[in-house]
Design a protein around this nucleic acid. Structure first.
Lengths: 174, 174
DNA sequence: CGCTAACCGGACTACCGAGTCCGCTTACGC
DNA sequence: GCGTAAGCGGACTCGGTAGTCCGGTTAGCG
């Protein structure tokens, strides 16, 4: 499987796009049949590339997480560590909540995909903000991640920005 | 169905107890078969009393929510509105997280069961604390509820108390 | 007692979604 | 062109769950 035939590659992309769409709308419980149909291919085609449904979810989430990594890198390069942190979190919120279903997928896969690097970067962003005295020192980077994810996941439709601000206020050094 | 035969009443209680146990362990996705088995009755017996599985979930959640109402009433009777509020929230946390699966059930049923009265009481507790200057004024009672629920739902196993404290700090008037 | 309506259990149906299989189609190297 | 292996689709299997049904059991009244 080093080289994919042209039609196979085309279908693979269709599947990934359709899966992103469908998962974004319905979350990780969307059925593979729906995705295959939306992609205009048979179920067999989906399962040939992604041996299990979870593999498909991972692939979709992977793309999504990559964008967050970019934000984290940007935050590390910024001048003010405190502002960088708070803007980073807000950016992650915008990204995640632009496709709520996908966010549920991220939660669904736990830590699996490119989360390791993202977490590593996130750790640095947090540590830097703590060193600069902008973030309270008694929270661990994992706590920040968890709290933010909770606020985003739990907020009703249009309210997540307000929720996030409350959490961010709770994270500020006092 | 005004009067229930003695054996029927006994079975009804067994079912409710078993359901509470099982939902507390496995969340709202636990199967009715498991509950019936744990209660030592047939599935038919369960469905005779609760026409759908959701009805059963509601009944179980109802009981759980009643305990929270008690806490809210207690909070309203307390002297210091600020302390009352923060202790109330912590109490709700203890109650909810002593049975995490049940908490997921509460989330699962949305607002259905005795939530209306609980919400009404909660509203008063929050308003009182805001009037006393202990809680920031730009949050609505529903936000408090949502934020707390999010923090509890999203926290990993042993960490919910720490999460809750961050959120509570975010809610304090500054 | 003994009769009967209420009640019981658990087999059964209906349905849904993940993952498999195989006969047919098509890209593409020669 | 043409032969063939890569690829395709979608019907099918399999497992699991909500909800139904009915022949058998029993509470409890007279």
């Amino acid at each position: 499987m080093v080289e994919l035939r042209a039609d196979a590659r085309r279908n693979l992309e269709r599947v990934l796009d359709a899966a992103t769409e469908v998962f974004a709308e319905e979350g990780p419980d969307a059925s593979v049949a729906e995705i295959a149909h939306r992609a205009g291919v048979g179920q067999g085609t989906v399962f040939r590339r992604f041996p299990s449904k979870d593999d498909l979810v991972f692939a979709v989430v992977e793309r999504h997480v990559a964008q967050m990594r970019a934000l984290a890198e940007q935050a590390l390069a910024a001048d003010d560590p405190g502002d960088a942190f708070f803007d980073f979190i807000r950016g992650v919120g915008e990204l995640a909540m632009s496709m709520p279903g996908l966010h549920a997928c991220v939660v669904h896969c736990g830590e699996k995909p490119g989360a390791a690097e993202l977490e590593e970067l996130g750790r640095k962003v947090v540590a830097r903000a703590q060193r600069a005295g902008a973030v309270r020192r008694d929270v661990k980077p994992a706590d920040v991640q968890g709290l933010v994810r909770s606020a985003l996941t739990g907020a009703p439709a249009g309210e997540w920005r307000r929720y996030l601000e409350v959490v961010l206020d709770g994270l500020r050094a006092r």
